[in-house]
């Protein structure tokens, strides 16, 4: 990256070479962000143990500027969803996501967070955290090895590199809406499904009426 900053595609007068760097604002903006991704200290299940190992000395993700794990969502840039997302936990996860300031990223670590994993059929398991919050990087594995998680984090850095300050959502004119927080009812209720409830009920009503007519005739 330093090379790119010092060797832009612009001509620098000889007397200023080595003293002035010319680069695009996107490059310098992303260069700063990609090397200081602060993950939230947030563990859900088995994968959290491997996440801790990545933070420890053998794999050491501080090499990539990520060692500052923040216990508070207000100070973090990255949510590593490390483990099985359950129905009882998803309201808190969505709330934490809403509390994170922009720019924010989500990494789904492991099979459970990506799609339910081995526990998918369980009655208390959400089939992947992306049913509720947007995910930037998926890391497969059960649990992913530390190398796999590092690869996922580097993939996220590459994604950050490709973003442009002109088009990122947090500089849009319209502020992004918080995600509605799911409610625990007889089963998990997603407020975004409310219209669908009415639709299904109307359909069921209609079907009941039709069969009713048939039996009468």
């Amino acid at each position: 990256m330093a090379d790119e900053i010092n060797n832009p595609e612009y001509e620098v007068p000889p007397e200023l070479q080595g003293q002035v760097s010319v680069t695009s604002i996107d490059k310098i903006y992303n260069w700063g962000r990609r090397n200081s991704v602060w993950p939230m200290m947030f563990g859900l299940a088995c994968c959290a143990i491997e996440m801790i190992c990545v933070a420890a000395s053998r794999y050491d993700f501080s090499r990539f500027g990520m060692e500052v794990m923040r216990p508070s969502p207000r100070q973090s840039d990255l949510m590593i969803v490390s483990g099985t997302v359950t129905k009882k936990m998803i309201p808190q996860i969505v709330r934490l996501y809403n509390q994170m300031p922009e720019p924010k990223y989500v990494l789904a670590m492991g099979a459970c967070a990506s799609g339910g994993g081995p526990f998918k059929e369980g009655y208390n398991v959400v089939s992947g955290v992306d049913k509720f919050i947007p995910v930037d990087v998926y890391v497969p594995g059960c649990p992913p090895t530390p190398q796999a998680l590092l690869h996922g984090l580097i993939t996220l850095q590459k994604k950050i590199d490709r973003q442009s300050i002109k088009s990122v959502r947090w500089y849009n004119d319209v502020a992004s809406e918080p995600i509605p927080i799911p409610v625990l009812g007889p089963d998990l209720i997603d407020p975004r499904d409310f219209p669908r409830f009415a639709e299904l009920q109307a359909k069921a009503q209609q079907a009941a009426n039709e069969t009713g007519v048939e039996t009468e005739s």
Binding site: A45, G83, T86, K88, M89, C112, G122, Y123, N124, V125
Partner: peptide
């Protein structure tokens, strides 16, 4: 919060 239905499965 991590009840993943071990016994039912």
């Amino acid at each position: 919060y991590l009840h993943r239905n071990h016994e039912k499965i």
